[in-house]
Amino acid sequence: MNAPTNNNKAHEKSKASEIPRVSIVDDDESVREAIKSLLRSVGLRANVFASAEEFLKSGALKDTACLILDVRMRGMSGLDLQARLAAAHHKIPIIFMTAHVSDKEARTRALQAGAVDFLYKPFNEEILLKHVYAALI
């Protein structure tokens, strides 16, 4: 695992814990690695998962303070995972993202179910970081 140590922009809470509290679930390797690098560049640490199933199996759920989640994936979708977490009363802030240009229905469902935001790829990194910081406070 990566250990950001010299980042002066890092949030105080991230310094307090060695355990990554951001989880990224996306079936596109390029995207999840890019987001991970972005978070690390600001002193945050993140776990990456290629599918919702992999995330659930990993046991990272209990330490996750913020979930960056792709909407459409093979197997369990982002919305399925959101529903499942809600059913299990896990109130983790979820930031959705999608590469599909017209996913209005999914956006509505995600936001109604309590998602922090629903971002279209490619997204503005400042908005993403703002949501992540907010979730980690």
Partner: peptide
């Protein structure tokens, strides 16, 4: 959009890595 998202995010990450001290 998938590769574009990766490129934009990587670009932003790159800028931040370079602006670190």
């Amino acid at each position: 959009n998938q590769p574009l998202a990766a490129i934009v995010t990587n670009g932003n990450a790159c800028l931040r890595w370079l602006s670190n001290d």
